[in-house]
Design a protein around this nucleic acid. Structure first.
Lengths: 227, 227
DNA sequence: TCACATTCCTGACAAATGTCAGTTTCACAA
DNA sequence: TTGTGAAACTGACATTTGTCAGGAATGTGA
């Protein structure tokens, strides 16, 4: 199957190698997909709704989260990669919601298109399994953090997620509100505020408005490790 | 690939259809595997060790759990199905530990054998993805329970896991200690004890030693739903 | 039968965290 | 510039849960 002209990734025309082949390697067939732009704050998809497509996040940062009555429980922050693979095959609904934390460039792949591609390429299937398992591993880590660590350890882990996984830098601009950070750590906004204050007083983190700078990475990792 | 005589499931010889085909359907090739018996309390595999095989649990109940220093955080209770699929492809270590809560009959499939089978059968790959996603969905549910609900709701969910998922009955024999139940609910043994006492006083559950009987299922579900 | 270990229960207290209310800060639009 | 609302901070207090210590109940093997 070849990409239709009107549904090509911008990459395809320019470099002859689109994200599909960048990600899955040359042996995987072309997969029809559609470029889309999402603005910061826009919902990519919503838990419980029918899943018409899988999303490949090319640029930007997204938050995956579970909804529980009026509460949101973030699962993880993601950049570059597939979102929604967990909704394939077992039922037709999204298992979690996703929202763009920054402006985002994505490709939409219809779920049936991807299923057809998988049916004819075990390479692709293997790659999908790998991707799902990688997230699964990370979610298990989050599971441990949230059930076993106390406030400071949970907050440390969120900050480390940004410095290590997302920005690869000791300094970063927070792409969300403190309320959302509190949700990620499964804390109240007030508790988060107090913990951040402690981190500042102990010279571990400088946090002014959205600007974060970790000044004592070692101690932050220590706090993460001892809870 | 045909099953070797000495590594057949007991099913294979007797019924010409082994668990592989029961599970994956007739289009999937035979997969070499080995029968094993595990006694109650025995470890099936250990998080962080190299994963030489995937386990198919044919009979019995197993507990999957994460290890964190000296603490154990159970992920879920499983009966009949694959354990360890999450360890395929992305790294060679088990992502969680597994222990038999009852005597258990299992089949071991070498991971390379399964990979070869997947490489030649997209049906099998699809089934593996489905299995992984089913567990993933359930783990997300547990994630929500443990981060959003308070003690009583968490304990209610554990009891409902046994009545609904494992035993399909209002009454059951607990296949583990209360300490383990406390770990599943991410509570201290003492807190669990107090919550069970309340459940008994309110006539929701009769719990004598290992014998559990839910007398007010509706109220138990209500407690689960309101936290 | 009797010791012994394990499991479970209970009470008192401490620690962690949530809730509520009030205030400050900041961004943005009129 | 000023007004407005959202976001963030802080203190007081309540609630939940953990920890510790002790004791009862249960099962096991000598």
């Amino acid at each position: 199957m070849n990409s239709l002209a009107e549904s090509k990734c911008s990459n395809c025309g320019e470099k002859e190698v689109c994200f599909i082949h960048e990600t899955f390697g040359p042996r995987v067939p072309d997969i029809e997909h559609m470029d889309m732009h999402f603005s910061k704050g826009e919902s990519l998809f919503k838990q419980g709704t029918i899943a018409p497509h899988i999303i490949y996040l090319k640029e930007g940062i997204a938050k995956l989260y579970l909804e529980h009555r009026d509460r949101k429980q973030p699962l993880c922050i993601e950049k570059k990669g597939f979102l929604g693979l967990e909704s394939m095959y077992n039922d037709k609904y999204y298992q979690y919601s996703a929202v763009a934390l920054t402006d985002a460039e994505v490709c939409l792949i219809e779920i049936d298109t991807l299923k057809n591609a998988i049916a004819s390429s075990t390479d692709l299937a293997v790659r999908v399994i790998t991707d799902i398992n990688t997230r699964s591993k990370y979610i298990y880590q989050r599971f441990l953090t949230l059930t076993q660590k106390q406030g400071p350890g949970r907050v440390a882990d969120i900050i480390l997620c940004f410095t290590d996984r997302i920005f690869q830098s000791d300094s970063f601009e927070l792409p969300c509100t403190r309320k959302e950070i509190a949700e990620m750590a499964s804390l109240s906004l007030e508790s988060l505020s107090r913990i951040l204050k402690e981190f500042k007083e102990e010279g571990i983190v400088e946090a002014e408005s959205k600007s974060f700078h970790v000044t004592d990475m070692e101690r932050l990792r220590f706090i993460s490790s001892v809870s």
